[in-house]
Structure formats: structure tokens, C-alpha cells
Write a protein that binds this DNA or RNA. Structure first.
Lengths: 240, 240
DNA sequence: ACCCGGCTGTGATGCTTATCACACGGGGGT
DNA sequence: ACCCCCGTGTGATAAGCATCACAGCCGGGT
């Protein structure tokens, strides 16, 4: 099969090796077959925009490969990144269910493989498959949960340092690094993007990183970042 | 029937006069009858706590009468009010569906009538009634939508003035006052609570109100607040 | 009528952070 | 080898707001 943008396309959800790990992919075969019939497998290059905040919902995008930046944007151009979506997530779900405009903008930051399902097809599918509908409720709950964390972080933090510490700890807990005393993580985003994730300015992020390095709390080598003093970070994230 | 806390109890969801207007109440009779069998009609006085952030989910609370304050709270005691829930809303829904701890704290601010449904009963009910499940997805979408607005307001505003203006406009658009040039609204919350809604301090809210009055943008008589210059408010909310 | 407690109004002070301005450095393209 | 652009580092300045401190005010209870 052709592989646009350097992707290896997964042909069918029925044979997808990742099924068991994914939330939405793990459905009984009858439902999966129905899903198979209404989905369009598509691929996007890096930097493609799946949908824009405010658009009326065309349908859902099931992310199979690559990462997608989910953000909101103010009238004066300021951007706030809410999350970086990973494979297995369903994007545009809440808007598609409710019929209200997309709340977020989705932009790929890797080459991505995506299954698109048109809104009317998807709604019909949900009515016919109660178990899928329940999965949707679960996914929405998770998204809501995420959003609540975001609200907590934005609304209840006193300082930018606190928010950055929270973010680094969260990142450090991925990839099975959670238990380690000195977790390491790939810094895949620029200072600008990190600033947009915690709602502060690029300069502040740079300064904070400089201070953390000076205080020996973190250390970086290339794009890898080592957390040398997890306790100190936690202190910053907790009380400040 | 006895009416604790001065409430007139609605006996059954089947005969509830408000059914048609409500999102969750408006279900086919078969589903409603099943719901009827698993719900516990309860009443709470003002100031009662339905559930606390971090508790593992006991079940859902369908609000029939009264208002409930939904908030999150930081370790150092700072509180952020996310919304004031109105009759017809389902509280604790996302936690009950996902099994994760309640994200918010729910506290009544009026005497309230509430239908409680235990988690296991509710999940069984959802599996058996696909249409109810779809309603749940819709409700969750709406909650997610709300949360996104909150994130936008908290994360993309430059000033407290901007957030207050947004809040006042939102309030002014309720109760069919939306179209009016000079909408009026009941100020049912203290400055402290308003501060907690926009993530600022009580003093700042007081000062902002003083300035808005001085600039003739608003005017208050008792607990009623008149918006005299909607355009100016919109300007503050939009650009600042 | 009194008092008391919760809400509101207002000044002074200092911290945090946005913003502007500019320098540096490294990697990719030609 | 060059340049150019993007990302990073750093200082100066000022705005915005939290915080403390205290005064007035209104309503409810006794």
C-alpha cells in the first residue's frame, strides 16, 4: 500500500494490532464491523488542521498514529494548548454528539493516520450500538476530567513556576518513568509551546528553566530532560 | 406529603410537570419507569454537601429543585466556583461513568430536591437503555463544553476586569434579558463568591464594581443590577 | 435598642509577570 | 561557506493584582 507522509497505513480496525490497548477500538466485532463501514481512513502531514474552533461539527476523528495539538485561541491571537492528543483518542467527539461548534482547534504535529466518521453516520451508529454509546460516554468523561484538571491548574495556581512544575511532573510520570527517583523525558515542544500550555509567556518559561537548572532541580542534555530533584519539584507544584 | 426544608416534593419522574423542559427527564416511558425504580428521592437543606472532590463516586444526583454550587478547591483553601447548577442538571455524572473520583465539590445554596441513583444501578440502567445512554453522552458533551468555556475564560483573559465583564454579560443574557439593551439581573452571590468564580480576590471584585458604577456601565438597586452600557461591557470582555 | 458578624469599600505596599528590546547560537537550505 | 530564521537567553520597565489593614454598614438575633 502507498504510504503518504511516510506513514504505514493500518488497513482495518478489525485487524489493528493496537485494538486491545485502545479505548474506542476495543468493541465487539459486530459494532466494529459497522464502524468499519462508515469510517474513512485518512492521512495528514505534520501541521495539518483537522478542525477549527467554532466550526460546526462535521464528524469525529479517531487518532490512530501521530500526535495532535488541541488548542483554543483568543481573538487577539493568544493560544492556549489544552493537550497533546495521543493515538487512540477520539477528537471532536463532544461537538459531534451535541451538535455545537467544535470547542477546540486540532492541528497535527506529526504525520498522522486518522479515521474520520461523518456526523450523521456516527450518530446513527451510536443509536444502533448501545455498547459503543457507552464507550463514548466514557471517553467524554475522560475529556471532562482532563478539562477539570486544566481548570484547576489555570485557576488555582499562584505562579507560573507552580504550573510549570506540575507540567514537568506530569510528563515525567509518562513512559513508565513514574516510579523512578530521577525520571527523564523528551522535551518535544518549544518554550513557546510550553508557555501556551501553562498560560504564560515564552520569556517566563525560559527564565523558569534557567532557575530550575541553577537550583539543580533539572538538567538537560540535547532534547532529553532529567528531573534530578523530584521532591523539590513537587514542593513547587504543591504549595509554592 | 411532608415537605422538609420547605420543599414541595415531586413524587415521581413520570408525572413531573417539568419533564419536557429537562434534558435528562425527557425519556421514553419504559426507560423512565426503570429510572423510577432505582432512584431515591431526597431533599437537602441549604449548605448541604452532596459530594466532595476526590471522593470515589457513589452515584449521580439529578437536581430537581434548587441551585447547587460546583467548585474545586486547592490544598491551601482557595476555592474556584465552576458553575451554579440549575434544576434538570445531572451532578457527578462523569465520575460515575468513568469510576474516577468526583472532580468537583457540590454544595447546595438553596433547599434542594434531588434524585440520587447508586452507581451500580445507574450503570446497569445505561447498559439496558441505549437512549438514556445517548442522553448521558449529550449531557457530558454539554459539561465538557462548559469546562472549555471556563478554560478559555481563565486561560486567555488578560485581566480580572475582562473576566468580570464576561460573567456579567453571561448573567445578563439569562431570563430572556438577552435581547434587551439594558438587561437586569439578580445578584445572588457575594463579592467573595464572584471572585471565586473568576479566580481573583474579593477586593478586586469590589474595586471593579466601583469602577463600573463610576463609569455608568452598571447600576445597582438592592440586589438587582442593571447593565446600563452593554456595549462598553462587551468591549471590556472582548479586547480589554 | 443593642450588639455582633458577615459583607463591602478603600488605601498602601510589594510581588509576579507581561512586554519590549536585543544578543546569541545552531541548523538547514542554497 | 554563507546566510537566514527560529529558538533561546537576559535586562529594564511597568502594569496588574494579591495581600494586609482597617473603617463603615446593614441585617438578624436577643
Amino acid at each position: 500500500m502507498l504510504s503518504p507522509y511516510g506513514l504505514e497505513i493500518v488497513e482495518s480496525c478489525l485487524t489493528c494490532k493496537l485494538r486491545a490497548e485502545r479505548i474506542f477500538c476495543d468493541l465487539p466485532n459486530s459494532a466494529l464491523q459497522a464502524f468499519e463501514n462508515i469510517k474513512y481512513a485518512t492521512a495528514y502531514p505534520k501541521g495539518a488542521v483537522l478542525f477549527v474552533e467554532g466550526q460546526s461539527p462535521r464528524g469525529i476523528f479517531v487518532l490512530c498514529k501521530g500526535r495532535v495539538k488541541m488548542s483554543i485561541c483568543s481573538t487577539d491571537g493568544k493560544t492556549l494548548i489544552l493537550k497533546i492528543a495521543e493515538p487512540g483518542e477520539v477528537l471532536g467527539l463532544s461537538a459531534t454528539v451535541s451538535g455545537k461548534p467544535y470547542e477546540l482547534t486540532a492541528e497535527t504535529i506529526d504525520p498522522c493516520q486518522v479515521n474520520f466518521v461523518k456526523r450523521e453516520d456516527f450518530l446513527r451508529f451510536l443509536k444502533e450500538h448501545g455498547d459503543a454509546c457507552f464507550r463514548v460516554a466514557e471517553q467524554l468523561s475522560e475529556k471532562y476530567n482532563n478539562a477539570c484538571h486544566e481548570v484547576r491548574s489555570l485557576g488555582l495556581s499562584h505562579s507560573a513556576a507552580e504550573k510549570l512544575a506540575k507540567l514537568l511532573l506530569e510528563w515525567g510520570c509518562r513512559n513508565g518513568e513514574a516510579a523512578k527517583l530521577e525520571p527523564r523525558l523528551k522535551l518535544a515542544l518549544t518554550h513557546e509551546e510550553i508557555a501556551q500550555m501553562i498560560g504564560t509567556s515564552r520569556e517566563t518559561v525560559t527564565r523558569l528553566f534557567a532557575e530550575l537548572k541553577k537550583r539543580q532541580i533539572i538538567q538537560s542534555k540535547g532534547s532529553t530532560l532529567f528531573i534530578r530533584n523530584k521532591a523539590a519539584l513537587k514542593l513547587m507544584a504543591g504549595a509554592s
